[in-house]
C-alpha cells in the first residue's frame, strides 16, 4: 500500500508538550463542570467551581489552538509526506464514524420510547399491563402532551411536530426553513471547495462567508425556536419524555453546529491567509466533512423529530 519513498520520511515529532497539559486542562474542566452541576443542584455558591471549569477550559483551548497551529506549520514546512496526510484522512473519517454512533444512541432512545415504552405505559402492546394496572388514566400519544404522572413532570401545552401536510403550513414552519438553510449551506460549502480547487481565492472566500452566515442564521433560528418551545409551547427539559428527547437531540445537534460554525470560521480565516493549496487542503476538507455530517444528522432529526 505505502510507496517506498514516502515511507522513509514519515514525520514523527520527537517530543510534544501539548497532550500532557491538555490532559490537565481537560481534567480541571470536567472536574469544575461536575462541581458546578452539583453545586447548582444543591443550591450552593457556584463561584469556585465556575473558575475551575473556566480555567481548565481556557488551558485546553489554548493548547488545542497551539497544537493545530504547530501541525499547520509543519505541513507548510513540508514535513508531512503523503502517507502522513493519509493518516489524517483516516483519523477524521473514523472520528466522524464515532460521532455517528453518538447520535445513533440518541436516535435509538427516541425509537425505543416512541414505539415501545410510551405505548406500554398507555396500555397497548405486549406489555400493556403496565398501563392498565399502574397508569389507568394515561393515553399513549406522540407528541406526548399528557405525561403519565403530570404532578412530577409538568405537561407541555402542545407539540412542535408538523400539524398538517400543506404548503401553507410549511411556509410558516421554522424547522422547515432551518432544513432549507442547512442544506443550502452544505451546497455553498461545496462551491467553496470547488473554488478552492480552481484556485479562485475570491470566490472561495465569498462562498465560505455565505456558509458561515447560513450556519449562524440556523443557530439564531434554533435559539428562537427554543424560546418559543419554553415560553409558548411549554416544552422544557423537565416536561416529560417529549421535551427530554426533543432537547437532547436538537440540543446536541445544535452544539455540533456551533462547533462546526466555529471550525468554518477558522477555515474562512485560513482561506483569507491563503493556507490552502488546490492539491493540499485536508484541513478544509475535514471541516467540510464535519459540516456535511452535521447536515445529514439534521435531516434525520427533521424527519424523526418533526415530521413523523
Amino acid at each position: 500500500m505505502a510507496s517506498e519513498s514516502s515511507h522513509s520520511v514519515y514525520y514523527v515529532p520527537e517530543q510534544t508538550k501539548y497532550p500532557f497539559f491538555a490532559s490537565i486542562g481537560l481534567f480541571f474542566m470536567v472536574f469544575g463542570l461536575g462541581s458546578l452541576l452539583n453545586d447548582m443542584s444543591a443550591g450552593d455558591s457556584l463561584a469556585v467551581s465556575t473558575w475551575i471549569a473556566l480555567a481548565g477550559f481556557l488551558l485546553l483551548s489554548f493548547i488545542i489552538f497551539q497544537w493545530f497551529a504547530t501541525v499547520i506549520r509543519e505541513n507548510h514546512a513540508g514535513l508531512n509526506n503523503d502517507q502522513l496526510k493519509r493518516s489524517y484522512v483516516w483519523g477524521m473519517a473514523w472520528f466522524i464514524f464515532s460521532e455517528v454512533m453518538f447520535f445513533a444512541a440518541f436516535f435509538g432512545a427516541l425509537f425505543y420510547i416512541r414505539t415501545l415504552a410510551v405505548p406500554w405505559l398507555g396500555g397497548e402492546g405486549e406489555k400493556g399491563l403496565a398501563g392498565e394496572v399502574l397508569w389507568p388514566e394515561f393515553q399513549a400519544a406522540w407528541p406526548l402532551i399528557v405525561n403519565p404522572d403530570p404532578t412530577l413532570f409538568t405537561n407541555p401545552h402542545e407539540g412542535l411536530n408538523v400539524k398538517e401536510w400543506s404548503l401553507s403550513f410549511f411556509a410558516g414552519y421554522l424547522p422547515f426553513w432551518n432544513t432549507v438553510i442547512l442544506i443550502t449551506s452544505s451546497v455553498t460549502l461545496h462551491y467553496a471547495h470547488v473554488a478552492l480547487k480552481a484556485e479562485n481565492r475570491k470566490r472561495l472566500i465569498q462562498w465560505m462567508f455565505v456558509t458561515v452566515a447560513l450556519g449562524i442564521i440556523f443557530l439564531g433560528l434554533q435559539a428562537l425556536e427554543y424560546v418559543e418551545a419554553y415560553g409558548h409551547y411549554g416544552i422544557t427539559l423537565d416536561s416529560g419524555i417529549y421535551g427530554s428527547t426533543f432537547f437532547l437531540l436538537t440540543g446536541f445537534h445544535g452544539f455540533h453546529v456551533t462547533l462546526g460554525t466555529f471550525i468554518l470560521i477558522v477555515m474562512l480565516l485560513r482561506c483569507m491567509k491563503g493556507h490552502f493549496k488546490p492539491n493540499d487542503h485536508f484541513g478544509f476538507e475535514a471541516a467540510a466533512w464535519y459540516w456535511h455530517f452535521v447536515d445529514v444528522v439534521w435531516v434525520g432529526l427533521f424527519i424523526f423529530v418533526y415530521l413523523l
Binding site: L37, A105, A117, D149, G240, I241, G243, L248
Partner: peptide, 24 residues
C-alpha cells in the same frame, strides 16, 4: 451517550429513565 442521558436525568430534570415522565 447513555451517561450523558443520566447526567440530564440527574441535573436537568429529564425523564429518560423515569416512567412518570414517559421514559423507561
Amino acid at each position: 451517550g447513555v451517561v450523558t442521558m443520566m447526567l440530564f436525568d440527574i441535573h436537568f430534570g429529564t425523564s429518560f429513565f423515569n416512567a412518570a415522565g414517559g421514559g423507561d
